[in-house]
């Protein structure tokens, strides 16, 4: 075991891991964090706490993470390289670790253009791979980026993201390899709707033997409506929603669409369970956290193992 991370333990046990996420509120409302986290507390192994998601200002992820930690749950600290330079990021990491947070995700983050501060300067002092590398260096070598030793290095279980669907497709596996090489212990993927393509991707992942080197959690998002499906297809960069999925959503009445979306999510999990290299699921129920337990249960992932 590299860390004390519960997620690491679940994964090491060979069980399929389940994670989900909580978006911190846009205000000093700790209750909101607690409320969201308690909705899913029994059904997941760890909870991602997003970092100024969609480039909108929110409560800082490590603060929200601490609240969740204080609830006795296991937060995954997300950190984007957009908002902080390497000094700030390293200081936040040791700060979070000091508060008991031992699992994190390294991301580059959505571009400021999309958020509520388009006039802000994106920092991007490091990119996501360099951040993975930096966290690993802190943990394994006990060194800061500047080369100085860390007294009591943070032992973080390091996650990174992968989008199997963005262009160029052939680069996707190589990029995953790069993240693993940089030190990623687990990977959470972008929401998967095009299962065929994802399976092809996983084949390539396995061909390179990467499934042996990393734990990959497949991203699952239940869709509330056909409108949302279309939106994801057309407006969200790097998202691949096949037409038959949209057709399927459109094929049922408006009232039945949420149910259909959940059905699709469950079917996806069922199918992906069989895919080699998939070690768990990351369920992103955007503003729909209350449905996570239902999905987890119906997909046969409940109860969660105790480690």
């Amino acid at each position: 075991m590299k860390t004390q991370s519960r997620l690491e333990k679940v994964l090491a046990s060979g069980a399929l891991a389940v994670t989900s996420e909580v978006g911190p509120p846009r205000g000093a409302i700790p209750e909101k964090v607690k409320e969201k986290a308690s909705l899913i507390k029994d059904h997941v192994d760890a909870i991602n706490v997003t970092d100024n998601q969609t480039a909108m200002v929110r409560m800082s992820s490590w603060a929200a993470g601490v609240i969740i930690k204080q609830m006795g749950l296991d937060p995954i600290l997300q950190m984007v390289t957009r908002d902080r330079n390497r000094l700030a990021m390293q200081s936040d990491i040791i700060g979070a670790y000091s508060m008991g947070i031992n699992t994190m995700m390294c991301l580059s983050g959505d571009h400021v253009k999309f958020g509520d501060h388009p006039m802000a300067n994106g920092v991007f002092d490091l990119d996501s791979i360099q951040l993975v590398q930096a966290v690993r260096k802190m943990r394994d070598e006990g060194k800061f980026q500047g080369g100085a030793d860390i007294k009591s290095p943070p032992k973080m279980f390091i996650g990174a993201a992968a989008n199997p669907f963005a262009d160029p497709f052939e680069l996707r596996v190589m990029r995953l390899a790069k993240k693993i090489k940089a030190g990623a212990d687990f990977i959470q993927t972008q929401c998967i709707f095009n299962l065929d393509k994802f399976e092809k991707y996983m084949e390539m992942v396995c061909d390179r033997g990467l499934d042996e080197q990393v734990h990959l959690l497949a991203g699952i998002t239940p869709m509330k409506s056909a409108g949302m499906a279309r939106y994801m297809k057309n407006k969200v960069p790097g998202m691949d929603v096949p037409d038959d999925v949209i057709k399927r959503m459109e094929g049922v009445s408006k009232e039945e669409q949420p149910e259909e979306g959940i059905k699709i999510a469950i079917e996806s999990i069922e199918r992906l369970k069989k895919v080699k290299g998939v070690h768990g699921f990351h369920i992103m129920a955007i503003e729909w956290e209350e449905k996570v337990p239902q999905i987890v249960e119906k997909a046969g992932l409940f109860p969660r193992p105790v480690v």
Binding site: S108, D127, S128, D167, L171, G238
Partner: peptide, 14 residues
């Protein structure tokens, strides 16, 4: 746009 040095982010399409 993000000065990434290690490859494209997940937002690339076409």
């Amino acid at each position: 746009s993000k000065h990434l040095l290690n490859g494209p982010c997940g937002g690339t399409s076409d």
